[in-house]
C-alpha cells in the first residue's frame, strides 16, 4: 500500500469543526460534505485538493466531535492518506472504520512543507519526501488494517468476511 502525492500541511489540534463545519452536517451525502472539506482552516482547500494529495498535520488531528463525516469528506475528496504527529482517539477509529488510511509520524509532520511531493509506504513503514530526499520513520499499518482499508472500511470488510465464510462452507 503506497501513496504518492502533493502535501498540504496544517498545524496542531486541527478539530473536526475545521475539517467539516457543523453547519454542513444537515446531510450525509459524501460528495456534498467533501465540497466543504477543511473550509474553516483553508477556505480554498476543497477547490485545490486533487485525488492522491496527502494531508500532513501536527498533533491531535481530528479532535473534538465524533462526526464520521470528517474522515468521510477527506476520503471522498480523494485525499490518499493523512499523516499527523498524532490523532485524537475517536477520529483514529472513525478513519479506519470508513477506510481512510492514516499514519502517525511526528518526524514527518514536523519536516514536510506544503507543496512538497511525498511518498508513503504504509506496509513498510516509510515516508519519503521526494522534494528534499529526506525520509522519516512511521509505524506501518498492520496487514489486517490494510485489508480493512482496501475493502472500503469496517462494514464492507465484515460483509466480505461473512460472504467468504458462507462460500467456504458451501465449497
Amino acid at each position: 500500500m503506497k501513496f504518492q502525492g502533493k502535501a498540504y500541511t496544517f498545524g496542531n489540534d486541527v478539530n473536526t469543526d475545521e475539517i467539516l463545519p457543523a453547519r454542513y452536517l444537515n446531510t450525509s451525502d459524501p460528495a456534498e460534505l467533501a465540497a466543504h472539506l477543511m473550509e474553516d482552516a483553508d477556505p480554498n482547500f476543497a477547490a485545490k485538493v486533487r485525488p492522491g494529495d496527502i494531508i500532513v498535520a501536527g498533533s491531535n488531528f481530528g479532535c473534538g466531535s465524533s462526526r464520521e463525516h470528517a474522515p468521510l469528506a477527506i476520503k471522498t475528496a480523494g485525499v490518499a492518506c493523512v499523516v499527523a504527529g498524532s490523532f485524537a482517539r475517536i477520529f483514529y477509529r472513525n478513519a479506519f472504520n470508513i477506510g481512510l488510511p492514516i499514519l502517525e509520524s511526528p518526524e514527518a509532520a514536523a519536516a514536510i512543507k506544503s507543496g512538497q511531493e511525498v511518498e508513503v509506504d504504509a506496509a513498510a513503514g516509510r515516508i519519503r519526501n521526494l522534494t528534499t530526499a529526506a525520509s522519516y520513520p512511521v509505524k506501518p499499518i498492520p496487514a489486517f488494517m490494510r485489508e480493512l482499508v482496501a475493502a472500503g472500511g469496517l462494514m464492507p470488510w465484515v460483509k466480505q468476511q461473512m460472504e467468504k465464510k458462507k462460500s467456504d462452507h458451501k465449497g
Binding site: I90, I98, M155
Partner: peptide, 26 residues
C-alpha cells in the same frame, strides 16, 4: 454514543464514550 459528549454519563459512575457512526451501526 455517536456523539463525542457521550462521556457525560461518567458522572453517574458509568463507562460511556463517544464513537462514530460505523461503530454505532455495528
Amino acid at each position: 454514543g455517536a456523539d463525542s459528549h457521550t462521556c457525560t454519563y461518567g458522572a453517574l459512575g458509568a463507562f460511556t464514550t463517544g464513537v462514530g457512526s460505523t461503530d454505532l451501526a455495528a
